[in-house]
């Protein structure tokens, strides 16, 4: 399975790597192009491993991932550059096989995850965030929150179940 993934991804890198560079070039700083290309293939790698199915139209798929990456990036940098925002709206070089519905899924998913986490019950949210975002171990969290390690496990379990549920319910 892993070998299959590696093989597929390396074929795609050869085939679509330079196209991706050309796609990113007018939209981001030169220094960021390599990182973005790498991020696209990393995400594809996760997808291929996860889906366990053949992707029939890799070109459409790859450029959709690239576009979603730019969109989520623009959220973080939205105040920085107006022209960057404009560039996102401009569709040149994106193959027309990408449906608009497919292209926004990344963004919707992003919003759903954020909403799910923010809306968690307070203690479950805290335990989850401390472990995931503040790099705290279960033991650290137990000490800081003054609860047992088992309770930390329960809180994190609850958080993970809730997040996945929200994501599936709203799909």
């Amino acid at each position: 399975m892993i070998n299959y993934c590696e093989r597929v991804i390396s074929t795609w890198m050869n085939e679509y790597g330079s196209g991706l560079r050309r796609y990113f070039a007018p939209r981001v700083n030169n220094a960021d192009i390599d990182d973005l290309v790498q991020e696209v293939f990393f995400q594809l790698h996760l997808q291929v491993r996860q889906q366990d199915t053949e992707i029939h139209n890799p070109q459409s798929y790859i450029f959709t991932v690239a576009r979603n990456l730019l969109i989520s990036r623009s959220r973080h940098q939205k105040s920085k550059s107006r022209t960057f925002q404009d560039a996102l709206e401009y569709e040149f070089e994106i193959p027309d096989v990408i449906s608009p519905e497919r292209a926004v899924i990344g963004m919707q998913e992003y919003r759903r995850v954020v909403k799910a986490i923010v809306g968690l019950p307070p203690r479950a949210r805290a335990a989850f965030q401390f472990h995931r975002f503040e790099d705290m171990t279960y033991q650290d969290i137990a000490e800081q929150m003054n609860i047992s390690k088992e309770s930390v496990k329960e809180l994190i379990h609850r958080a993970l179940v809730r997040i996945r549920q929200v994501m599936e319910d709203e799909t």
Binding site: Y110, V113, I117, R164, M167
Partner: peptide, 9 residues
């Protein structure tokens, strides 16, 4: 995958 995705947000 969910766990990895949390990086993005």
């Amino acid at each position: 995958c969910d766990w990895a995705c949390f990086d993005a947000i």
